[in-house]
């Protein structure tokens, strides 16, 4: 399906990865922790190791939540773009299959937010 236009249609992709100065956009969502309201967006180099995503990107943002320090990282269940996956921590985002505008979700079994409210 396509736009019906009078004189052809100018097809611009505004968010091409080349426009992000070497970064790609990555979204991260902590399931059952809706206190953050939405997945968060980060511009990150595709070469960034997954471990660095956890320690340098996710930790500063999510550690504010009291559940964060209780996370058993070995038990975390990860999803990438709707599919369950097991990230290799020392490999890059790219090699883990994380692409431009991907959504990474993580679930922390046993941790259900502030007073178990999934916040």
């Amino acid at each position: 399906m396509a736009v019906i236009a009078k004189d052809g249609y100018v097809d611009i992709v505004r968010d091409k990865v080349e426009n992000f100065h070497g970064n790609q956009l990555v979204h991260v969502c902590w399931d059952d922790h809706l206190l953050f309201s939405a997945a968060q967006a980060f511009p990150l180099p595709p070469e960034m190791p997954f471990q660095a995503l956890v320690s340098e990107v996710m930790t500063p943002v999510f550690s504010y939540h009291p559940d964060f320090e209780k996370i058993d990282w070995a038990a975390v269940e990860w999803m990438l773009d709707g599919e369950a996956f097991t990230p290799e921590m020392d490999k890059s985002l790219k090699d883990n299959g994380v692409c431009h505008k991907s959504l990474i979700r993580f679930k922390t079994p046993g941790l259900m937010g502030i007073n178990g409210t999934r916040l």
Binding site: F36, S37, A41, V61
Partner: peptide
């Protein structure tokens, strides 16, 4: 604290 990151749109 306000959110330190920007939300997915």
């Amino acid at each position: 604290k306000y959110l330190e990151a920007l939300p997915q749109l």
